[in-house]
């Protein structure tokens, strides 16, 4: 139990003293996960709008497939992106493997299904009357989708927060395509795994506390924005 207590004390110490390396790692974690969340949102919100708005053959099957990928293991996504970006792989020429960009791509791929699925269910729960009214008032499909998205904005922002949460807490993708390079691709989760491997249990715990602190700030921020509206 002393280890847990020491970890907590050390976390407070690292936060209060603004330890350079820890701030660097935490900032990189936040940036990579924020970028991947934005990237995934750019894909998921319009695509989710289209899927939910249109009716087509195989729609139910498609949604089932998307929901299945909620449980895709992070290491599988990591392995897939690794094989794609490796020099010996199809996208090897980009030279992206073991860079922060590769981690952004990997994490975005990881959280796209969950954000897409939740966006679709958020939009499906919007009152059908809104859709019909906008269409009868002469709105184009795009305008109607936009109206529905606005109605469901709280549920969609919940999907974004969940996506961010999965991105910042995952370690499989970041480790396999980032490589945990100190000062370049090391983020909080890979640093935790690394420090624990090297026997620095207190520091590993401290980094975990810092990760939770970041999540707390982000969640509070999103809630604040929601309450204002």
């Amino acid at each position: 139990m002393t280890e847990l207590w020491d970890g907590l004390v050390q976390a407070l110490h690292l936060i209060v003293t603004f330890d350079d390396e820890v701030v660097d790692i935490a900032w990189r974690s936040l940036r990579v996960s924020a970028a991947s969340t934005v990237l995934a949102a750019l894909i998921c919100i319009p695509l989710g709008g289209l899927i939910s708005f249109r009716s087509f053959r195989g729609k139910r099957l498609l949604i089932n497939v998307i929901q299945t990928f909620y449980s895709v293991p992070t290491v599988c996504v990591g392995l897939f992106v690794f094989l794609m970006l490796s020099r010996a792989g199809p996208l090897g020429g980009l030279g992206l493997l073991f860079t922060p960009s590769a981690m952004v791509v990997g994490q975005a791929l990881l959280i796209t299904p969950i954000m897409l699925g939740l966006t679709i269910s958020a939009l499906s729960s919007v009152d059908k009357n809104i859709r019909d009214t906008t269409l009868s008032l002469g709105a184009s499909e795009r305008q109607a989708i936009w109206a529905i998205i606005k109605e469901a904005r709280f549920a969609i922002s919940a999907a974004i927060v969940l996506g961010f949460g999965r991105a910042i807490s995952e370690v499989g993708v970041a480790m396999m395509v980032g490589g945990n390079i100190r000062g370049f691709t090391q983020i909080l989760t890979t640093a935790i795994a690394d420090e624990a491997n090297q026997g620095n249990v207190e520091l590993a715990l401290a980094l975990g506390v810092i990760l939770l602190a970041i999540a707390l700030v982000v969640t509070l921020g999103v809630n604040l924005v929601q309450q204002r509206r």
């Binding site: 924020a34 970028a35 934005v38 990237l39 960009s101 952004v104 305008q143 936009w146 606005k150």
Partner: peptide
């Protein structure tokens, strides 16, 4: 219902992605 908010949102998101990406690179 107007088209404006949609473009605003997309623009903001794209800008945010670019800024974050740029910081990430530099």
């Amino acid at each position: 219902m107007t088209r404006k908010p949609l473009y605003c949102l997309v623009t903001v998101l794209v800008l945010a992605a670019l800024v974050i990406g740029a910081i990430g690179c530099s």
